[in-house]
Design a protein around this nucleic acid. Structure first.
Lengths: 190, 190, 190, 190
DNA sequence: CATGAATGAGCCTTCATTCAT
DNA sequence: TATGAATGAAGGCTCATTCAT
């Protein structure tokens, strides 16, 4: 007896992400998805019972993968500013290198599919950032604002940087990267 | 001879914005839109030749109205920093008080409809800010970065502030508002 | 009080014929017709109560005009063959010069509108032709077939000639015209 | 896996021809066509991607089937005149016995759909006749006119004959048939 | 008479999903 | 499991006609 083919499942997920990136959720047509995956439409239904559940499943897959990856890359013994930069760089890189996945995560939140997502883990843990901000405040290097506020600035500067790179206004070079980090740093440093 | 009813056009725009907020662009069905406006479907087509152009027209309306309004608060003889704050406040207020319109502006940028927006319209949206940034750089008050970069920071700080207010982390008071603007100012001031 | 404008009525008819020629009956849109005539759609309805009746009215107009024109151009004292050629030429010329009108007459017979035509005069009188054919037979120049048969051949050769001219396969010159008439003559001469 | 049903395709074609005969091209509604065929509307779209292509495909089917059949009766070793008569008879019979198909062929030429027919298809329709005309000219039996011209005469004589039969002026007997063919032959023989 | 707005009925087409092999 | 055929339920849009001035 043949068994469900994991590689086929992954291909369906990958192509769904691509399609959403290119055409949005409304632009995902089961027929085109099947064509891209290289199977028949009916085969998709062997793996997922309907379009809704496919889209939600892709979301859950993304969240779980992403959560496991996060929190890496902050070397212990750096001075605070470099630790922060390290975290910042990690996320900028991630945003750029997983453009399609990020787009999927953003778009689903504005779509009716989001209501179907079970109220499980929705956001990648902020814990790593919060600990770092606390350290910065303890060392007197950061403004003494609420962590939520600093995180908001931190996060939105990452988004701004990502957009500028996607725009081709800046590039992911050390120089541009330093410049953008400087803007963030000036904003939150004490 | 019957005369075209401007209020009808405005109602169509308003209901379109509502529908996009509730269900996204793909969720805008001409039939439901007509029902909400209180006219027949064909009447919609008297005002806009098709769905695409309706959606783009709503966007253009939003941009032009808001752009002209945003420039109004900027009194000539204020010092630069206050002018900038005035523009910033305008958009923070708008984001908070016009959640649906903001949602429309964000969503359209991720949708295929955005490609149909004439580039002049897009530029108009930036014009007020860009002029102000130029002034700031001339007066030596802003970092000499590309306007696109400053705009990205400006915009993302507005988004961050809006989220924090919607989170209830901060409030739309002078104090919190000043604090958030200070973060922006520190980031971009020279 | 203004009175219905005869020139406007004629313009409506003329443009209807043009439109049918270009796009067939299904391609006649009241809106485009109005645009071409240079009046509003509603004005058309002042002159004709609906599309059906407009189309039928145009047909009746064509029939009546055409009937009154027919039967001209056969000089008395020519030898028979030239008389026949004269009649033949008259109709070939007519078909070519009233291409659009002829097209209207042909098309309406294949359309559902034809059922709405009152059972009045439908065909242009054959009498002129029949008399001539009788003369030809009396003089021993034509085959002794039924007039209906000769008329069918006569008529279909006119149609064939017209098509060839419209195709640009031949031209309305003396040479080509003589050649085509020769084909007809060979067919029916005794 | 279900298998595509050739008889369904043929039924669609047959019903399309019927509908065109009854109501013209504009009168072919996909819904009614589906109802007559006994399938759902969407099933029609499984076989033909849209109405336009359906209509053109029916035309192509008619042309190819009839063309190949019309050539079959023409036995190699008949003298030219009999070959020509054979083709002529084929078409007269076809016109009489396949009124609907003939109507389809005539109507499409006056409709905008005709522009969508690939030119190869149009040429195929003429090929059998043209070859025969070439043979006749080679043997010195036909006038040396352009094939287009001879075809026009040939075709219009078939139409004339058909009309006379439908009129009951003549019958589809050997005698009447010979008489009508003689008229054609006299017209085009050298 | 003239007109532009307004509309209802209808049509083509799409597409997620189910059926049958 | 895998698949192509079949379908029902919409959805966008058109257009002849009527309304109101």
């Amino acid at each position: 007896m043949k068994v469900k083919d994991e590689s086929k499942r992954l291909a369906i997920i990958a192509q769904t992400i691509d399609l959403v990136f290119e055409k949005g959720f409304a632009g995902v047509k089961m027929a085109e998805l099947a064509r891209r995956v290289g199977v028949s439409v009916s085969t998709i239904y062997v793996y997922y019972p309907n379009k809704e559940q496919l889209i939600v499943a892709v979301y859950e897959e993304l969240i779980s993968v992403q959560t496991s990856r996060s929190g890496q890359g902050i070397t212990k013994d750096l001075p605070f500013k470099l630790k922060l930069k390290s975290l910042w760089l990690y996320w900028v890189n991630f945003s750029i290198n997983h453009e399609k996945e990020m787009s999927y995560l953003h778009q689903i939140k504005q779509s009716p599919y989001y209501n179907l997502v079970p109220s499980e883990v929705i956001e990648v843990g902020y814990s790593v950032g919060f600990e770092l901000f606390n350290l910065g405040k303890t060392e007197g290097l950061l403004k003494k604002h609420n962590n939520q506020i600093i995180m908001a600035v931190f996060g939105s500067m990452i988004m701004a940087t990502t957009k500028l790179i996607q725009n081709k206004t800046i590039k992911l070079t050390t120089k541009d990267s330093d410049m953008m980090f400087a803007l963030l740093w000036d904003a939150i440093k004490s």
